[in-house]
């Protein structure tokens, strides 16, 4: 299908973009990579009256490390993260997650910030942001505010951003080398959104887990942090046995939806299978 009519504006500076978003135009929407918005417009699930194209705001395309934070600009494309030279457990998690976002021709256009603003509960970037307790910076002509990931995702396609706010960057923590990170997901075809995805970040000291974060997609209307799995991991001896008991705890804890892609029982099974897989590299049996 074809989208309905809209007006199009393309600001050249961030200030200009913020002024446009605040000018009172009804049904005005930001377009970044367009890889979620345009399909919805083609299906007429979205019918914005005006698009504000932030595609030329190159200042938002930068990845910068400052002290113990990596700041990822809202316009950083998936493919940039897939090829990031960033080292350590964060770099490898970014590369492996990016490779699972859609297909290459989607990754050349789609952006990190666009994924978060779109807020699909199975999105790799929404999950990674929630996993690492990232801080999301949004800006409007009223000023700037920083929203913790735990508060940013409200529900499906809904975030804590106001209509006049633009997501500008996301601060991720640099992860020291005693962290083990990983991702495992299941989709019917390569490039599809995952039916269930699991991301993990555990800190292991002398074989014992001293900190653990587990994020699960596809089991809630927003990225889900599994308190039960994290509790099961903490203080345990890192290995497949521990991962399997954490997976059982998570499968008991989640209350997944049933839809055409899989029912609740199936999704629980996927949690059980995927959680150990996400973190198994390097875990002794």
């Amino acid at each position: 299908m074809k989208p309905s009519s809209f007006d199009y504006v393309r600001p050249n500076t961030l200030q200009e973009a913020l002024e446009l978003l605040a000018d009172g135009t009804e049904d005005s929407k930001v377009i970044s990579g367009g890889q979620s918005l345009v399909p919805m417009m083609n299906f007429r699930l979205a019918r914005p009256a005006r698009l504000v194209d932030i595609g030329r705001l190159s200042e938002l395309e930068v990845i910068r490390t400052v002290d113990d934070r990596v700041h990822v600009g809202a316009r950083v494309r998936h493919v940039q993260l897939q090829n990031t030279p960033l080292g350590g457990p964060l770099g490898s998690l970014l590369r492996r997650s990016a490779a699972l976002v859609g297909h290459l021709p989607i990754r050349t256009r789609g952006t990190f910030g666009g994924s978060l603003a779109h807020s699909d509960a199975a999105s790799e970037w929404c999950l990674l942001t929630r996993l690492l307790d990232a801080e999301i910076t949004v800006r409007s002509i009223r000023g700037e505010r920083v929203i913790p990931a735990a508060e940013f995702f409200v529900s499906v396609f809904t975030t804590a951003m106001e209509p006049d706010e633009l997501l500008t960057s996301v601060a991720l923590p640099v992860l020291p080398d005693d962290h083990r990170t990983g991702i495992a997901e299941f989709a019917r075809r390569a490039g599809d959104f995952a039916i269930v995805a699991v991301l993990g970040d555990v800190t292991v000291s002398d074989g014992t887990v001293t900190a653990a974060r587990i994020a699960i997609g596809g089991v809630d209307d927003k990225p889900f942090r599994s308190a039960a799995a994290e509790k099961a991991l903490l203080g345990g001896t890192f290995g497949l046995d521990l991962l399997q008991s954490a997976a059982e705890a998570a499968a008991d804890e989640v209350d997944p939806p049933s839809d055409a892609h899989g029912d609740a029982v199936y999704r629980r099974d996927l949690v059980r299978a995927l959680l150990p897989r996400a973190l198994a590299a390097g875990a002794a049996a």
Partner: peptide, 27 residues
């Protein structure tokens, strides 16, 4: 498909493959 899935519309934009059904000409 006109929603990014089939790839029949793939073209190169500044050398990189992209879906021509998911970008407006004005962009």
């Amino acid at each position: 498909c006109e929603h990014g899935v089939c790839g029949a519309c793939t073209v190169l934009l500044d050398g990189q493959p992209a879906r021509a059904c998911l970008i407006f000409a004005v962009q």
